[in-house]
Every structure is written in structure tokens, then in C-alpha cells.
């Protein structure tokens, strides 16, 4: 049976600047990501893709290609200039009385929903791991508190249960549970990143967005973090979007991959295919320089 996608992205475009007919036009094509007419920066241009249940989708591209902009739009951190996003979940997604999408969000473009609805969706269905722990964590609040905050967002109100889950997740992410009530500013970078992952998955999101999770970590910690993500994927059956410029990460984690350049999708397909037999010139350069 072919599953329905949980997330459909359609023609997502983000222009930083005024924008003009040239850069807003769907068919326009120009070199680079600066509009020749109005000099606006094109962050993302006509990005469309589907994310299926339990799938891990990779987004790869050089820095400045619009990967993080895209993820931040999907996470509703920033608003796209135009474009649509649809969500669909069937069945129960967790054991704490999950009741599905709010009525206003069913079959509707999430980007044009009211901020109240957006907040609800963000809190209940998405998890996000940022590149830097400063963005994803409150470094002055205890590690346990950071994880609990995520569960509080999803309306959990039982401290014992939440602390039990937080310590379970800290165990999973190999952070000593004794340090649960210590603020993450006392932690190393790798530990902070793992607290962030524990936080993002604490309310069992349907979609987990990972933005350059391993960048800046040393190789052994990288391996641990990647291992963790893979284990989690098997355990909690979450759909993931993995953004990275590291092809090793993409190869290890993802089933399908999108290659971005200058804010546009230039190639997409099965990860193996893209890595073994890249079609576009840019992808060929990328694959050759990495391997």
C-alpha cells in the first residue's frame, strides 16, 4: 500500500529583500541567488517535496544554498514569501491523548493558518534540532527543564512522569542522569547537542527536523549522535528531515535525498542513486570532493 505523505511542501519561496517580478516569477532562471533586477537574495525558490511516514529525507547542498532557511520555514520560525505546506497524520501518535490536527489545519495551507494554530502544530507535531545548541536550548535552565519544557508545550502536567521521561531520554542520549538538574551551559558541545535531541523527541513528534546536527562536533561524538538518531528512528517511528552538507551523514541516515543549490532543488532521488550516479554537474562535484 502506498502511504500518504505526512508533509507536502509546495512551491515554497523565500525572498530576502523587496522582491520583484523577476525573482518571484516561477519560471525565471538566473545564475546565483541574487536577483539581477532588484538585487534581492533568493533564499529558497519553488521548493516542493513530499515527506512520507517513517521516512528519512536528506537535504544536501553547500552553505548558503537555502537548506536552513527551508527548515526554519517548515518549523514555522520564519514566514515564506509564498508557498504552501500541508500536513496529514492518521491514527494515534503517542499515548498522551493525542487528538490529531486542529480542525483549521486539516487540508489547509499551514503557512496561512493563524499563529495560534501554528503554535499548536509546532508544539505538538514538530521537533527541531538546531545547528547550535544556543538556539535550541535555554542554557541557564536545567537540562531536565529543557526537556520538560517541550513536554509542557504539549500540555503534559505531571512532574513525576515528565522527569521520568526526561531521565530516560538522557540515558538514551548517554548523558549522566545525575546531571539532569544542571544547566547545559556546564556541558560540552557534544553533550549540549545530545540534550537538544532528547528535548526534540521528548513529546514524540511526528516530524523531526535536524539542521546540521553533527557540524562542529568531533568525530567520535559525531558517531555517537548519528548512532543515536538511527536508533531513535527505529524506535519511535518518526519522519525525519536531515539537513547536512556532510555526505557521510546523508549516506548513513537517509533513504531519499534532495540536492539544493542557490535556493533551488537541482536533483532528487534515492540517496544511493544520487551518491553513486549523480546526474547534475554540481552534484557530481559535491560527491567527488567528499568521497
Amino acid at each position: 500500500m502506498i502511504k500518504k505523505p505526512v508533509l507536502k511542501a509546495r512551491n515554497i519561496t523565500k525572498i530576502f529583500g523587496k522582491g520583484c517580478p523577476t525573482c518571484l516569477d516561477d519560471d525565471s532562471d538566473f545564475e546565483g541567488n541574487i536577483c539581477p533586477d532588484c538585487k534581492s537574495v533568493v533564499g529558497c525558490k519553488n521548493i516542493s517535496f513530499d515527506l512520507y511516514p517513517n521516512e528519512v529525507l536528506g537535504i544536501v547542498g553547500e552553505s548558503g544554498s537555502g537548506k536552513s532557511t527551508l527548515v526554519r520555514m517548515l518549523y514555522l520560525d520564519i514566514e515564506p514569501t509564498k508557498g504552501e505546506m500541508f500536513l496529514e497524520f492518521d491514527g494515534d501518535l503517542g499515548d498522551d491523548g493525542f487528538s490529531g490536527l486542529p480542525a483549521q489545519a486539516i487540508g489547509a495551507n499551514i503557512f496561512s493558518a493563524k499563529s495560534f494554530v501554528k503554535r499548536h502544530i509546532k508544539n505538538f507535531f514538530f521537533g527541531m534540532v538546531y545547528q547550535s545548541a544556543q538556539l535550541g536550548l535555554k542554557l541557564d535552565v536545567t537540562a531536565g527543564g529543557n526537556i520538560v519544557e517541550r513536554m509542557l508545550m504539549a500540555n503534559n502536567r505531571d512532574i513525576k512522569k515528565m522527569r521520568a521521561r526526561a531521565s530516560y531520554l538522557l540515558g538514551k542520549t548517554e548523558i549522566p542522569v545525575e546531571r539532569m538538574d544542571e544547566p547545559p551551559k556546564n556541558f560540552s558541545g557534544g553533550m549540549q547537542q545530545r540534550v537538544q535531541i532528547a528535548k526534540a523527541i521528548s513529546n514524540e513528534p511526528a516530524i523531526l527536523l535536524l539542521d546540521e546536527v553533527t557540524t562542529g562536533l568531533d568525530v567520535s561524538v559525531q558517531a555517537k549522535v548519528l548512532d543515536l538518531i538511527r536508533t531513535l528512528q527505529n524506535e519511535i517511528k518518526v519522519s525525519m528531515l536531515v539537513v547536512s552538507h556532510d555526505l557521510g551523514v546523508i549516506r548513513l541516515l537517509t533513504n531519499r535525498t534532495i540536492v539544493m543549490k542557490n535556493g533551488r532543488i537541482i536533483e532528487s532521488g534515492l540517496t544511493d542513486q544520487i551518491l553513486e550516479d549523480p546526474q547534475e554537474e554540481y552534484t557530481q562535484i559535491l560527491v567527488n570532493s567528499a568521497l
Partner: peptide, 14 residues
């Protein structure tokens, strides 16, 4: 406006 009260709850938790 968004009933985004998790930080208040977090304050009580801490």
C-alpha cells in the same frame, strides 16, 4: 495571543 505559556510552566517546574 498564541497561548504560548510553556515558559511560565517551565518557571514553575524549575
Amino acid at each position: 495571543a498564541e497561548a504560548d505559556y510553556s515558559r511560565m510552566w517551565l518557571y514553575l517546574y524549575e
